[in-house]
Design a protein around this nucleic acid. Structure first.
Lengths: 337, 337
DNA sequence: ACGTCTCTTGCACACGTGTGCAAGAGTCAG
DNA sequence: CTGACTCTTGCACACGTGTGCAAGAGACGT
């Protein structure tokens, strides 16, 4: 059996379909009594308005597209949760797409979003390469970037204050007495990495410590290479007394590599991360890190987007603050070092 | 500037809109030469067909709805990744919704899916309460449940063979020499928990060991309560020599609680989980667990769904096998115990 | 009685796409 | 030359909803 349409209800109520449309929309143009009758019939029939038909005439879909590199990344998942929660409150639906960092996949995603006439797009933690950015900009819907590289003038963005958060974490480490602090960054040159490295460097200089280039390593943001980088750092003499990792995943690998080599964290060497993923509380030892308010950032991105969709202007560059979370992976350096 | 429609292209090509429609659909009814011209114009205009208009007439949306309790759950995230990947191959889009286990949210989600005329629905790891199940069943689209409680006759489902996987893990522990094995389950009575407990019990009996009820604890599937349950188990005399946790999250909490109390895993006590979440490799020590092929299960659920959408019949009950993953959280029990 | 104003309703069109049917042009056999 | 057939195209309608406009009904003041 087919779904009931507005016409079926009209027939049952002995009115025209226009009246039904108005009644269900709560228009004041329709007699309260007939409106009540119509609503009752709609209820009984289990009527559901067709979003497609509606969007065809209103040219709004009440839908937003969200593209992430992969939803299996805990950071992306938390952000998407925040987005979807907020979208739900505004009666928007979210279409989720994984780009897997594949260019061909990215263009397919944008194409799909265009066909679906999404009202807006949120791009999370993508590198947004040159061609991708161009493709995106050609679509006429508002776009909000979240923690992306290269925020450009035509797109809005929500970001954490990487520089300041990074510097705060570094100050904490330096305050503990550390003088030889290593940094494991990201070789793909994300803007977030660049900024965090900037904070690292600024803090060192602020404390009168020079930048030792051999203490700077690059990984890929995942545990595996984080571990390899940490292992390499352990071979250096003098050995760094603390390692600041670009993100928690990298730190996770570092912790594992260090522990496997028989050293203890933080007794022999301190480790800090960035993100405060859920698992940071359950690593061994629990990880000192910088908390990014991921859900709130997702929510913020969506709020910005709906504001844009409603034709309103919005702050083009929203920045949120990180929060230093001290756990047990950091401590003052050993006496003898 | 508005998006180009099929009519705009028709005007530019001096043909009717029907011809354009056919040409772009690759129909053999249209002259190859004109088809080429039309396609070229469509390309230049950056034409994108309106999914809404199309779905209005074809009454198919090429869209599926996926509802999870929360995408922040790593299990759900992996499953959704598998679903979306497969959906992409079939040119379906996925609408993601978090129910947060709130009944009012669930009915809102289903309502939204109905309005969007999704072609099918996948429900992941939900309890699917009685009223929810009823609501779902009334919607006329095919539904596939993934690791859900109470798979019922009118819905298809994809599940892991919990019983067999659980028994295999238990046999492994027993084979190591363990005789006092505790179980931390889930107090909400998920079917998966019931089945895993069934495997636990069957393995004990198969080895001639009785079920010691004081060794069976209940948590909520999250680390916090897993830790509390483990702490309570440590107080028992004789103390269990191994703990089998309902899922990895619970095991994570158990590991933490045990380590904090100065005991070592696996030297003093063994711990095993279930799921093989990403973080199981990076816990301390790395966790012995049962791997669920989460992405494949997601993919399988989607394949089943599209088969159903295409009117074909499909196996109503798909079951996949788990795989025992032995890491470093399990070892033979201490000599003196 | 008449004009005006308010309240309520229906008509008709628009949105963008797909498709059955007919019709025109061209081809070919008889 | 005629009829049948193929190839290609356009007409017209359908899908389900929203909305400007007109029109009818009733109330009210003059």
């Amino acid at each position: 059996m087919k779904r009931a349409s507005i016409k079926d209800i009209a027939r049952l109520a002995n009115v025209s379909h226009s009246t039904v449309s108005r009644a269900l929309a709560g228009s004041s143009l329709v007699n309260p009594e007939t409106a009540g009758k119509i609503r009752k019939i709609a209820e009984q029939t289990g009527y559901r308005p067709s979003a497609a038909a509606r969007s065809l005439v209103t040219s709004r879909s009440a839908t937003i597209g969200v593209v992430v590199t992969t939803i299996a990344d805990p950071f992306a998942a938390e952000v998407v949760l925040g987005i979807e929660d907020a979208a739900n409150e505004h009666n928007y639906s979210v279409i989720l797409a994984n780009s897997n960092a594949l260019p061909e996949r990215e263009v397919k995603v944008v194409r799909s979003f265009e066909e679906r006439r999404v009202d807006g797009i949120i791009v999370t933690s993508s590198r947004v390469g040159a061609t991708y950015a161009e493709t995106l900009s050609q679509t006429q819907v508002p776009i909000v970037l979240l923690n992306n590289q290269h925020p450009s003038e035509f797109m809005h963005s929500v970001m954490i204050d990487n520089f300041e958060a990074s510097r705060e974490l570094m100050r904490y480490l330096i305050g503990l007495g550390h003088r030889r602090i290593a940094y494991i960054g990201d070789r793909y040159g994300y803007q977030s990495d660049t900024e965090r490295f900037g904070g690292y460097r600024a803090a060192l200089e602020g404390a009168g410590l020079g930048l030792n280039k051999s203490y700077v390593m690059l990984g890929d943001g995942k545990p595996e290479e984080g571990g390899e980088a940490a292992a390499a750092l352990l071979e250096l003499r003098p050995r760094p007394t603390a390692i600041f990792c670009y993100n928690d995943m990298t730190a996770l690998g570092a912790l594992k590599a260090i522990t496997e080599r028989g050293l203890r964290v933080p007794a022999d060497i301190s480790v800090a991360g960035f993100d405060d993923l859920f698992l940071a509380r359950y690593s061994f030892p629990p990880l000192t890190t910088v908390r990014q308010p991921m859900r709130e950032m997702g929510r913020l991105a969506l709020e910005t987007l709906v504001q844009l969709c409603d034709g309103g202007e919005s702050q083009p560059f929203v920045q949120v603050a990180g929060e230093l979370i001290v756990r047990e992976s950091t401590a003052p350096p050993k006496e003898d070092s």
